[in-house]
Each structure stands twice: as structure tokens, then as C-alpha cells.
């Protein structure tokens, strides 16, 4: 079976969707030379009217995508670095997201905002290392963060085909993941559908983004003492609350690990919802970056601010004692 990398999965999904639907096109910086590899080979296949190189004008370009979507196109706007989503927060949240309701259902804005590499990398600086997914979940913009090549493929297809704006965030650490796949098995993954990577009966670990792989490693390391269920939401908004309730009905214990700041983060929402609505036999816990954390300034300091496997193992044991 061929090995599929995360970036190859994105490239494959994008190319297939552009082939299938002539309304799909890409806007972004350095897409002609495929600096992120997402658009590799697509300029030759589809030409400059489908792979559209843009100047460094993210705010206007994001609104250009909205305008093209109102016309009937399905734009994919590629951002190489996560802070650019913060630069265009207004254009996504206050423009694209609101056209459907403000037009009383006349308008559709089927735009995909694809961040090809999000989160921390050693030495990339304090302005290149954020995880902005919580901002979009809070705003009600559909947001996905797949962590495997097959899910990246399936969720990119779904994001492009969805009639609403969708933020697609590829966690930097997950880009290194490769899978043995049969291409025939690659299919769209619906929004709001979680994936249980490992079943367990003692504790549910909801792992956001690349922490899915950390959670799997910790679950394996602790297998002799505790049975850990690894729950990957994949789609952060809408969230598969029914699947979480089902998992907690079996385990009764919850740990969330999310590489994002603590206050008002997605981990807080998951804990709050579980506490309000789901059966828990022990107080839930979360592992996040600290409140207001800025990472990226110094690799040695950064590691002290981000969730890790040791913390996860410790917290799982704490939750099991209650």
C-alpha cells in the first residue's frame, strides 16, 4: 500500500476537487511555487486563473474570496502561517460568516480558509506560533483540524463542498504523519463527526489536533494500569457532542488536551459541556497553554508553556484517583 503524507493528502484532495468542480480555485501567496507543497503541480494542471497568486494583501484577498463565492465560485484561500487568520478575523467572522443570515438566506459563502501549517515550531518567533482555532469556534465559523492524512483528505473535500465558510487548520506537528492507505479508501469525512482512535473504558482523552498522536502514545504507555479512550473531534465546530456523551457514558472520566491558551479555549468549552450535560464520575481536567501565553520566543522556554505527554500521563492518573 502506498504511503500517504499529510501534505500529499491535501494536495491530492485539492487537485481532485478542482478537477471535479470548475468553480473551485485557489487564492494565496506563493501558491505558484507551492511553498507549502499544498498546490504542488496544480499551476501546470489548472493554470493561473485557478491557482491565483496574490500580493501580500490578506484582508482584501479574503474579501475577494467572499465576492467570488457570492458570484458562485468555491474559493480556497491558502495561508502559510496561522497569524494571518488573526489578520483576517474581520473578513471571516464579520463578513463571510454573516452574509447568509444578513441576506435572509439569499447568499452563500462557500470559502475554505486553509492554514497549511499551524502552531509552534522551534525558533519561529512569537508571531508565528499561535493556534487560532478557538477564535473561530467561539465565533461560530465551521472549523476543522484533522491530524491524519486520511482525515486531512476527507475533511478538505468536505470543507470545499460545504456551502458555508470553513476554517481548515493543519497542525504543523501532524504534517510529519504518514499513513499506509489504499487510495480507493479515501472518502469525504462529514463535519461534526468525531473519530475514536483507540477505545478504552476508564477515561476519555479528548485530544485536539496533533495531540491525538501524543494521546495515543500515552495510552499505549499506560496500558497496563489504565484503559484510555482517545477521542479526536477532527471537526471542532460543529463538535460531535453526541459521540462525546456516548464515550463518557462508558468511561465517566474526561481529560482534554489542547495546544491553545486556557481562558475561553475549546478545552474549557468541552469541560463545561461535559459537566453540565454528561455523566461524569470524577471532576474533568484539561491541559492547555497558560492564560495569554506567547510561545515562539525561545525554544527552551516554549516547551515549558505547551502541553506534553508527561503532563497528560500525570493528569490521567490524577483523574483515575478520584
Amino acid at each position: 500500500m502506498p504511503k500517504l503524507s499529510y501534505l500529499k493528502a491535501l494536495n491530492r484532495a485539492l487537485g481532485e476537487e478542482m478537477e471535479r468542480d470548475p468553480s473551485v480555485f485557489v487564492l494565496g501567496e506563493d501558491v505558484n511555487h507551492a511553498v507549502t507543497n499544498v498546490t504542488a503541480g496544480l499551476l501546470d494542471r489548472f493554470g493561473p486563473d485557478r491557482i491565483v497568486e496574490t500580493p501580500l494583501s490578506e484582508q482584501a484577498v479574503t474579501n475577494v474570496a467572499t465576492g467570488a463565492a457570492l458570484w458562485g465560485r468555491r474559493p480556497v484561500v491558502e495561508f502559510a502561517i496561522p497569524f494571518l487568520l488573526q489578520l483576517v478575523l474581520e473578513q471571516v467572522v464579520n463578513q463571510a460568516h454573516k452574509f447568509s443570515v444578513m441576506s435572509g438566506g439569499q447568499a452563500r459563502v462557500p470559502v475554505t480558509y486553509l492554514v497549511a501549517s499551524s502552531g509552534w515550531r522551534p525558533g519561529w518567533g512569537g508571531q508565528h506560533s499561535d493556534q487560532p482555532h478557538g477564535l473561530f469556534v467561539h465565533s461560530g465559523v465551521k472549523t476543522v483540524m484533522p491530524t491524519t492524512p486520511t482525515d486531512a483528505y476527507g475533511l478538505l473535500l468536505t470543507a470545499i463542498r460545504d456551502d458555508d465558510p470553513v476554517v481548515f487548520i493543519a497542525p504543523r506537528v501532524a504534517l510529519d504523519v504518514r499513513e499506509d492507505v489504499d487510495y480507493a479508501d479515501l472518502v469525504p469525512v462529514p463535519l461534526g463527526s468525531a473519530r475514536i482512535h483507540r477505545t478504552g473504558h476508564d477515561v476519555t482523552v479528548v485530544a485536539i489536533g496533533h495531540h491525538v498522536h501524543d494521546a495515543l502514545a500515552v495510552a499505549e504507555a499506560l496500558a497496563d494500569e489504565v484503559s484510555v479512550e482517545v477521542f479526536d473531534p477532527r471537526s471542532l465546530y460543529p463538535f460531535d457532542w453526541a459521540a462525546l456523551a456516548e464515550s463518557l457514558s462508558r468511561t465517566g472520566r474526561l481529560v482534554v488536551i489542547d495546544d491553545a491558551n486556557r481562558s475561553c479555549g475549546l478545552a474549557a468549552e468541552i469541560l463545561a459541556t461535559a459537566a453540565e450535560e454528561m455523566p461524569l464520575t470524577a471532576p474533568p481536567k484539561r491541559i492547555t497553554r497558560p492564560d495569554g501565553a506567547v510561545v515562539g520566543c525561545n525554544p527552551d522556554l516554549d516547551l515549558a508553556l505547551q502541553p506534553n505527554r508527561d503532563q497528560l500521563a500525570t493528569v490521567i492518573r490524577q483523574v483515575m484517583k478520584r
Binding site: Q59, N63, T66, G67, A68, A69, R73, N94, S103, Q106
Partner: peptide
């Protein structure tokens, strides 16, 4: 925020000046 898609009015957006960029996108696609 008046819009009227039957009359080609794609919307009224109040982030001053930003509607012109939405217009550029529609004009590009057109």
C-alpha cells in the same frame, strides 16, 4: 445590510471600504 440577489445587490457591508474588496472578487469571477 440590505441585499437583493434578484436585483444583483450583493449586500451592504458596513466595515467602511471593505465592500469594495468583495466587489473585486465578484468582478474577478464575472
Amino acid at each position: 445590510h440590505i441585499s437583493d440577489y434578484e436585483r444583483g445587490l450583493y449586500g451592504a457591508t458596513i466595515t467602511v471600504g471593505h465592500g469594495a474588496a468583495i466587489a473585486t472578487g465578484a468582478a474577478w469571477a464575472a
